[in-house]
């Protein structure tokens, strides 16, 4: 029984992580795997499914295929602490202080340049550390509006 409880605990923690490395359902680029220093896999929980995407932008672009409510575990600046955003009844909600970086030009860069952060300071630190050009901190609302504009990538 102890072993069973332990396994359930392990599975509970790892439940949002896919076993298999696949291509992003939206951009078809390889999903960048998590590392010891940085999480990269964006996981969408919809109904009984947990689907990995390459970046937050890809999730928003692909959201219309899902009719039910969504929970998105977006990798943040901290390993093991994703920014959790939800689409409930079609409305997106995230943590109050979260911000989004979205400055990629091609999808080969989207995993690094379309990311969520728990705070503005965390985004600034990431931008500085990675020398990101033209960075702008977007609120979740601004980000979604930007992505849903048809002229966007």
């Amino acid at each position: 029984m102890k072993k069973l409880v332990l396994l359930i605990l392990i599975f509970g923690v790892m439940g949002v992580v896919s076993a298999h490395e696949a291509d992003c359902p939206y951009c078809a680029e390889k999903i960048v795997q998590n590392t010891d220093k940085q999480d990269n896999e964006v996981v969408v929980k919809v109904g009984n499914k947990r689907i990995e995407y390459r970046c937050l932008y890809c999730v928003i672009k692909d959201q219309r295929r899902y009719k039910g409510d969504l929970v998105v575990y977006a990798p943040s600046e901290k390993v093991g602490s994703p920014v959790v955003i939800k689409r409930t009844g079609g409305k997106w909600v995230g943590p109050e202080k979260m911000v989004v970086l979205n400055v990629f030009k091609k999808h080969t860069e989207c995993a690094a340049l379309s990311r969520a952060f728990s705070t503005r300071e965390a985004l600034d630190a990431y931008v500085k550390r990675n020398n990101v050009q033209n960075a702008k901190a977007l609120s979740l609302k601004e980000f979604i509006e930007l992505v849903e504009k048809p002229v966007q990538k």
Binding site: I10, F11, G15, V16, V17, S18, A19, H20, N48, R50
Partner: peptide, 14 residues
């Protein structure tokens, strides 16, 4: 049964 999910099997080897 549909609602269950055991996540990544510890035995999985890529």
């Amino acid at each position: 049964w549909s609602e269950r999910n055991l996540g990544r099997p510890p035995t999985y080897r890529k």
